[in-house]
Structure formats: structure tokens, C-alpha cells
């Protein structure tokens, strides 16, 4: 019997939880705020789903209800992607080492 592809996805999911666990524990506590803003930005990769949703169907009827939800999701995710990465960048620029005399 063939293995259901779902099982593969579940394996990826569970292994990623473990990767996340070890990677996040190694994050230095002083960078916990940038950690939150960058996780925020990367979870907006949900925009992938939003793009598929908004381009679904024939190009004559691009404003069906399902597409509109897709467009709205694109706006939300885009705010997050740009906002999240840029604000993280802004914060990380501020972390400086002591100047050597």
C-alpha cells in the first residue's frame, strides 16, 4: 500500500517543530523582540495561498467572492511582510557593540 502524501507533510511539520525548538532556544534573549517581529514577517508567507486564491478561476470574472477574499488577504499579508521585515531591520541596526577606544 502506498503512503498517503499527508504523512509526508506531517513528517515535515513535526521535524520543523523540532528544528524550531532548537533554533529558537539558541536565540539570545536580548533579540527576543526582533524574533517576534521576524516570525511575524515569515508567517506571512501565507500570501502564497492568497495569490492562488485571487488568481483562481477565469480571468473574465476576477471579482468573484473567493477572489475578493484572496485580494484582501494579499493586502493584509503584504502589510505584514514589508512591515515585519523592515521593522526588524530597523531594530537590528540599533544593536551596536561598544566602541573600541
Amino acid at each position: 500500500m502506498e503512503i498517503d502524501p499527508f504523512i509526508f507533510r506531517l513528517s515535515i511539520f513535526i521535524l520543523s517543530i523540532f528544528v524550531g525548538y532548537y533554533v529558537v532556544w539558541s536565540v539570545t534573549p536580548s533579540l527576543h523582540t526582533p524574533l517576534m517581529s521576524v516570525t511575524n514577517a515569515i508567517s506571512s508567507v501565507i500570501i502564497v495561498g492568497a495569490i492562488i486564491a485571487s488568481l483562481a478561476g477565469s480571468s473574465q470574472k476576477i471579482f468573484e467572492v473567493s477572489n475578493i477574499f484572496g485580494f484582501l488577504a494579499i493586502i493584509l499579508a503584504a502589510v505584514n511582510i514589508f512591515g515585519g521585515f523592515l521593522v526588524t531591520q530597523r531594530m537590528l541596526q540599533m544593536y551596536k557593540k561598544k566602541k573600541k577606544k
Binding site: 507533510r9 520543523s16 525548538y21 501565507i46
Partner: peptide, 28 residues
């Protein structure tokens, strides 16, 4: 939530990210 959508769309990037963000928040 992102991981749930990742499973729906069968999208590895979303599944991996969802798991990372989920465990990151839990650890914090």
C-alpha cells in the same frame, strides 16, 4: 494557523514556517 493553511494548500514553505513560528511563540 499558518501551518493549518499550509496543510490545506499542501505547501511545504507554509508548513515549515508555521511549525517554526508556532514553536518559537510557545518557547517565548
Amino acid at each position: 494557523a499558518a501551518a493549518g493553511i499550509g496543510f490545506t494548500l499542501e505547501n511545504t514553505a507554509l508548513i515549515i514556517t508555521g511549525a517554526l513560528v508556532g514553536s518559537s511563540g510557545a518557547i517565548l
